[in-house]
């Protein structure tokens, strides 16, 4: 049994406007499962549907929950995770990561991507590991950097 076995990870998805988000999230679920970590995806309705349609048999993803409900549960101390990966491509994503930094005890990682990744990453001023790349359509630059923040 490894030290990550039985742990949980939250993948907090942002607006699915940037294409890399869905495939990187499914890839990350696979990597987490390989380590015995149960992934839980939280996102908006559209972000959740993109994930669920792409993995209809749920071979990679696990539990999928509403974003607001998830934040409520963590803020009310009803639920928490060992790891939290926040998908960030805009100011809203930074705000969600900032919220998790305050309400959760999870090891927090910001996955920053999109055209303005460098500026967005620079606006993260709270404790949070960050991987940033300007990827928008090709997920590989993000996938390569994910290796640095996997447990």
């Amino acid at each position: 049994m490894t030290e990550t076995e039985g742990k949980t990870a939250l993948l907090l998805l942002g607006c699915p406007q940037v294409p890399v988000q869905t495939s990187v999230a499914i890839h990350l679920c696979d990597q987490l499962r390989e380590r015995g970590i149960a992934p839980v995806i939280a996102g908006t309705g559209a972000a959740r549907k993109l994930i669920e349609v792409a993995d209809p048999k749920r071979l990679y993803i696990g539990e999928v929950v509403d974003l607001d409900d998830c934040i409520d549960a963590i803020a009310e101390k009803q639920r928490d995770f060992d790891y939290a990966y926040v998908f960030i491509h805009n100011d809203g994503g930074v705000s969600y990561a900032g919220t998790l930094s305050a309400i959760s005890r999870a090891r927090l990682v910001g996955i920053v991507y999109g055209e303005h990744a460098d500026e967005t990453a620079a606006s993260i001023t709270f404790p949070c590991e960050v991987v940033a790349t300007k990827a928008t359509h090709n997920p590989m630059p993000v996938v390569v950097k994910l290796g640095r923040v996997l447990p």
Binding site: D68, I71, D72, I74, A75, G92, V94, S95, Y96, G98, T99, S101, A102, I103, T125, F126
Partner: peptide, 16 residues
């Protein structure tokens, strides 16, 4: 206030 502060029955989202 800290992010997660409850206002109008919602938890506030933001950078602390």
């Amino acid at each position: 206030v800290e992010p997660g502060y409850r206002l109008f029955d919602a938890h506030l989202i933001g950078v602390p």
